[in-house]
Design a protein around this nucleic acid. Structure first.
Lengths: 252, 252
DNA sequence: CGAGTCGTTGACGCGTTTCAAGTTCGGTGG
DNA sequence: CCACCGAACTTGAAACGCGTCAACGACTCG
């Protein structure tokens, strides 16, 4: 799925504070860089305390980090891999509300239980912070809270885009939008985008786009026949002309 | 539409800083209370400076505060009335991403232009803050930024609920969810909920729920025939048993 | 090699949209 | 005060896009 070539894209010196934890693989340079970017405004000593709070964990693909309704004890930061966040109705209907990439935070919402489930898509590394200590750290480091507010604002803007998609776009436009935004997000973080890896199944794409597996599959076929995309393998897409696809995504 | 009986629900002493602006009606106690609640952690002097930055404006119903793409010069806080936030595709398809009530902020997102439009539904009062000064104030008052992060987190949770609605719920479930969440939001702010005022048209409800006017109208009729709601007038709903409606909203 | 998972494709059905009348209601002017 | 008008809403019938169901192929793993 998500290729190992994605890793260590940016070779960055490992901050001192990121010492190897016993029983876990050494953090790679890219991983350190992602988490580091969040706390860039912190001074060295504060960074040390920040990383000191975290437990570093590695998850296999398709493992639950937590489920809707679990006690919200921790805040997570994805450092490697990808995670999907979803909500479900009692009869099993599911909506995936986001695919997280390295650098994204998880579990920041208010309330004493998680309002959504989180599951890894690929092999994933996270930093896990006890909620109380994380909050206290924020109170003492307003620059960090400022940064988080900025990230939350961006997520809100993305959520609004997704509402437009779910409420008003056709099946083809949804799939096109999905591919374009995945490509854009990867590009923004310095990841390779050609070919674009799809660590999620067709079923997960469907649950993200408010469609069925079959409709997603038909949309991929149609995009392929129109030569707007080419499927190198089932989970690697080539996008010959991103702007053409973007036009379709915006309904023109 | 939104009745005058909604106002002054909470009689709270008017903070000194909220002096009457020339040419505008005197701020009512409820209005002061709403805006006040946001900056409760601030001391008296900081509150004075906060309110000092704001221009207080009153808008008639159906007036644009700003449009998608306008330069994002200001941050708004709704103090009275209701505002709808929307995004549109080039061919006119529109998605309303939220209905704002007193106390809500608007225009906090990053970026130098607004990513959405904002329009009043009823007669509305807002406090308008120049973006730069607002940001500087936040930098100097981390308690306030903390509060905003909390509000943004809540909005994010609401956005995820809305994605579940748009992606996976049927028309009836959407309308039921809409009525329940509107009732809950009003109750949470101490507003009356029986009858529940609907300051928005069927068209706006449709654009919020990803449906057409006709489908919304049919759903209202169906709910009325099932006696889950009663329409006192076209824009005032009685909900005899909120929990029944909530069950329907959650798909059971 | 067989079983299971995932993806694709086709045929059909259904819920929502589209199109087309009506109806209600608030506002305006005679 | 009432007739008239337009906007908003409601209702019905037909059309259509997507969902459902089913068959099949590709691939992985024991």
């Amino acid at each position: 799925m998500s290729s190992s070539s994605d890793r260590r894209v940016h070779a960055v010196p490992l901050p001192q504070a990121l010492k190897r934890e016993p029983g876990l693989p050494a953090p790679c340079a890219a991983c350190a860089a992602r988490t580091f970017s969040v706390c860039a405004p912190l001074d060295g000593e504060a960074q040390h305390r920040f990383f000191g709070m975290a437990t570093r964990l590695q998850y296999a693909p398709r493992k639950l980090l937590f489920q809707e309704g679990d006690a919200a004890d921790h805040v997570f930061n994805v450092t490697e891999g990808s995670v999907c966040v979803s909500k479900a109705l009692s009869d099993g209907r599911r909506q995936i509300t986001g695919f997280l990439l390295p650098g994204d935070f998880l579990g920041l919402a208010q309330g004493d239980s998680y309002a959504y489930s989180a599951e890894t898509l690929t092999e994933t590394n996270v930093c896990k912070f006890p909620r109380g200590r994380f909050q206290r750290f924020l109170a003492e480091n307003p620059q960090m809270e400022h940064r988080l507010l900025g990230m939350a604002s961006n997520e809100l803007a993305a959520a609004q885009d997704q509402m437009l998609l779910l409420g008003r776009k056709t099946a083809i436009e949804r799939v096109a939008s999905f591919l374009v935004s995945l490509s854009d997000r990867r590009a923004a973080r310095g990841f390779a985008t050609s070919p674009l890896p799809l660590p999620m199944t067709r079923g997960e794409i469907a649950d993200y786009l408010g469609l069925t597996i079959e409709t997603v599959s038909r949309a991929f076929t149609k995009l392929r026949k129109q030569e707007l995309i080419a499927l190198e393998t089932i989970d690697r897409v080539q996008i010959p002309d991103l702007e053409n696809l973007r036009d379709l995504a915006l309904g023109s």
